[in-house]
Structure formats: structure tokens, C-alpha cells
Design a protein around this nucleic acid. Structure first.
Lengths: 268, 268
DNA sequence: CGCATTTGCTAACGGTGTTCACCAAAGCAT
DNA sequence: ATGCTTTGGTGAACACCGTTAGCAAATGCG
């Protein structure tokens, strides 16, 4: 008898062999999904601090302690939905990537990066909890699901960059400026990212890091509204950064509207 | 009789003409300073959500409602200390800037940017509330003190950039790529920053924006620990970004240790 | 059916922001 | 010195919050 051991710490046990999940497991998954869905809504409506177990329970017609059968605490719930959101943004970027011809690497990159910004500005609260400071998390909370989901999200861009790299479209920068310390860190980066190429040059990783930092910076600045007192619309600056970023990558920039400047675009 | 109108909404009134602040005003300022100081310590020790009026009052030997004589609420207190922190980081950067020869513009810029990162990584909680998402603020709270302090902070860099610009050290980028929308936003930027030069070219503002975005990005990424699962030390990447940033600015990069590569450095 | 597991509840503890009524002390003017 | 006004602070109260412990009902399995 395992009295006192909460359900969320036991194995799924997934019984029934090939008959799929049992009825119990299905309804359990359903209520967990409802919890996460409501939490998500509260997040976008009232910010991170506006997500509370009691409010969720109230809305579900339950009481707060009941939720502890599904989630070990509020912080863990935040971790859960944060991981979900990483999956979501990764899907959004992938979908945008897949919506353009697979051979047009330039357009794929352009589209993917714009999709990232687009998702960010239309999901500000989510972006803030994912890419902002780990305020409520990090201490005493297991964040491995988040970094795992974050890793998968990163892979979306890595593969694209990998493809660009294999096309040898741009000259790698001067590697003599890379200090041994930087090389060590970049190597660690490449290793944990799991690139397809066996031995990727550190210069390439440096370029990738630099691009990611710039993209992250401009999007954060827009979502966190740190230039609002000085700029009304941040898209022009984003496009400008995009342009200058891609220039160093040998990728031909195209403005947002024009889908095809090389092939004739279908008029719609 | 103004019953019910809290003190913090009345004018300072600053009586006594030239005799300075009255005794009452002095002790009032002292307790307000104590409130902010304790709040600040709680912030760095327990994060933004760890700042509570009750805890502060407890530590001061008072009760929470008493604090409402000094501060209209917890959010406003956060705004207050955030503004203070902007002043602090601006002072830190200014001090670093002033610690090197005034004629050596290159070294001044290098030193200032490094000072910014240095302050950020040694004041993570403060940086997060200043430059992270405006989670607890923004809604229903008057943030003008923060943006005002932020503006003064920005000026620290603007003046340096202005000096660099007047030296005409680097060729401005091709302005033909600047769309009208971008130009409008950049103009607004320049206007609210109050540059000394009467008519600064938009190309220069674009360069400044780009540099600020990159600096912001790399420092945020380090402080928010979003690459921790892949890089142990972020300084090499920061230096690398610094190097590539300054290369476009015509500023000679020098590694952190070496103070003088042009003049003979004093061996210490 | 019987029994073990799962699920949800109530009660409770300690914490939070905030408002209100009230009171005492300080300051000021006559 | 006396009286009045302003100021600083308290205690009680309301409405929230996360979390734990113990218990009762529902559920599913043999």
C-alpha cells in the first residue's frame, strides 16, 4: 500500500499491453490537459504571477488541494506549460519553414526567423516565461523538461543552419581571433546540439551563436517593450537586423511582402 | 482637513526656504531609504516575488499598513527601486568610463561596455527586473520614473557614441537600404535621445540601435542563463560579440587584460 | 462481491496586499 | 502654554495565495 505517495510520482505503468491507455489514464490525461489549458489562459491574461492553483481549481469546479493529485505544485505546473510552449513555438517555426519550397534555403531561413518573431509578439506572456529570467523556476524546481524542450526548439534552427553550412554559401570568418576559451565553449555548444556533420568548424558555431544572440536580443527588446518610449513599431528594426545578419551568412534578403524575387511568384 | 489623503501624494512643499529640509522631511527620507534598502536586499536574496511589504515592515519593527504612509503599494515600491538601480548602473558605467584616459575613445567604449556586462552579471536580480519583462509593473502602475531613469542610463552610452561619431572613425553603412518606416522610427529614437549634434544621420542611429540590440542580447542571454546547458562561461562569447561589434565601428579591440596595446602599458 | 487504489474534499497553517477606523505623537499657531 | 492640525503608526479585517494532513467517496480489478 503506497499511501501518501502522490500519483504524479508513480510510473505511467501504461498497462493493457496493446489495448492502449486504460480509461482511468485517459480521463486523468484529460483533466491534466484541462489544468494546463486553464493555467495557460491565466498566464496570457494576467501574467506569470496571475497563475494560481486556487483560481484554476475554482474554474474547474474543484478545490486547490485536488490539483496536487496531478501536479506537485505551482512551480512544477509552470514548468509543464513552459515545456509545452517550447514545443508550440518549435511547431510554429517548423510549419512556416515547411510552407515554402524546400530547396529555397534562403527563403526557408528568412521565413523561419520571421515566424519566430511573429510567434513571440503574438504570445508575449508565453515568450516572457520561456525566454525571460527564470524567476519562479530554477530554485528547488526541476527544470529539465524545460531545457529538454528548449533543446528541441533549438534543433529547429540548427538543422536549417546545418543545411546552409553544407551548401558552403558564405566564407567562415577568421578563426585566428578565436581564443582557446571561446573555442572550448563553442565546442561544448556544438556537442550538446548534436549536429549532423561529424566535425563542424568552430568558426561556424561562432557565427551561429552570434546570429542567435542578435535574434534573441531584438525579439526580447520588442516583447519586453524596452524601446517603447522611443519607437512605436519594432518591425523595421527587426527587418534591419535580419538583413544585416543574413548578409554575413550569404543569404539573400527579401522584404516581408515579396515572396519570390527569383522565381515568379504566384499572384494571390 | 485632508483626512485619508496619503502623504506620498502631497507636494514636498520643502518649506523653510534656504534652511534645507525640515527635520520631519529628513527622518521621512531616512525611513523611505531604509524601506528601499531592505526591499533591495530581499530582491537580490529571494528574487522579485520575494519582495513583500509585510516582510519589510517586520524587519523594520513596523506593521505593513504603516508602509503605506511612504509608498502607495508594492508595485510602486518596485518601480522606485528599479529607478534607483538604473541610476546605479549608469553610475557604474560612468565611473568605469572615467577611469581611463579621456582621449582614448576606443578604450573608453571598451571599458564602458565591459562595465555594463560586469554590473549585470554581479547584479542578476536587479538586471532581471530592469531589463527583463515588465511582469509586475506595466499594468495600472505608473512606470514613468523607470523610463525616465532608463533614459538617463541610455544617455551614458549615447554621449560616448556621439563622441565616436564626431571623430568620423568609421564609414556609415549604406543608407539606401533603410526603408521609410525604419527611418521614421530611427528619427523618433534620435529625437527622444537628445543628441548633441543637430541633425544626426539616420545611418548612425541604425548602427547605434544594432549595437545596443547585440549588447542587450548577449548580456540578457548570460544573466537569464539561457545557454547554461551548453556553455559554462559566457565571457568568451561576450568578448567575441564585442570584438565583432566594435569592428564595424572602427574601434580597435583589445582583450580584457591588456590595458594599453598602443601606449606602453605600466606593468603591474 | 470484496478490496485496494485513486480521487477529491475539508480543515488548517502560514503567508501575501490592501483598506479602514482609530489613536498617539509631533508640529505649529495663537 | 494651550489648542488644533497634520503626520506616523497600529490592529482588525477581507480576500487572496501555496501547501499539508486526514478522511470519505468513487473507481476499477480480481
Amino acid at each position: 500500500m503506497r499511501r501518501g505517495v502522490p500519483r504524479h510520482m508513480t510510473k505511467p505503468q501504461s498497462g493493457r499491453g496493446a489495448t492502449g491507455p486504460s480509461r482511468r489514464e485517459r480521463v486523468r490525461e484529460a483533466t491534466l490537459a484541462e489544468i494546463k489549458q486553464i493555467a495557460r489562459r491565466h498566464l496570457v491574461e494576467h501574467g506569470t504571477s496571475g497563475v494560481s492553483l486556487r483560481a484554476i481549481a475554482r474554474e474547474m469546479g474543484m478545490t486547490a488541494p485536488g490539483l496536487y493529485r496531478y501536479v506537485p505544485g505551482i512551480d512544477a505546473l509552470l514548468v509543464l506549460i513552459t515545456a509545452d510552449m517550447f514545443q508550440e513555438v518549435a511547431d510554429a517555426v517548423s510549419a512556416a519553414d515547411a510552407s515554402v519550397p524546400a530547396e529555397d534555403t534562403d527563403l526557408r531561413i528568412l521565413t523561419s526567423l520571421r515566424a519566430f518573431r511573429s510567434w513571440a509578439v503574438s504570445h508575449r506572456a508565453e515568450f516572457a516565461t520561456m525566454f525571460g529570467p527564470r524567476a519562479r523556476l530554477s530554485s528547488e524546481t526541476d527544470v529539465t523538461p524545460v531545457v529538454e524542450a528548449g533543446r528541441r526548439f533549438g534543433a529547429t534552427f540548427y538543422t536549417l543552419f546545418d543545411r546552409l553550412l553544407s551548401e558552403e554559401r558564405f566564407p567562415l570568418p577568421d578563426g585566428s581571433r578565436i581564443t582557446p576559451e571561446l573555442e572550448r565553449e563553442l565546442r561544448a555548444f556544438a556537442d550538446t546540439c548534436g549536429f549532423s556533420a561529424p566535425h563542424i568548424p568552430v568558426e561556424a558555431i561562432m557565427v551561429l551563436s552570434s546570429c542567435w544572440v542578435r535574434l534573441y536580443g531584438v525579439v526580447c527588446m520588442e516583447v519586453f517593450e524596452h524601446l517603447d518610449f522611443v519607437m512605436r513599431d519594432m518591425e523595421p528594426l527587426f527587418e534591419s537586423e535580419l538583413q544585416s545578419m543574413l548578409a554575413g551568412l550569404g543569404v539573400r534578403y527579401r522584404p516581408p511582402g515579396a515572396e519570390g524575387s527569383t522565381a515568379m511568384g504566384m499572384p494571390d
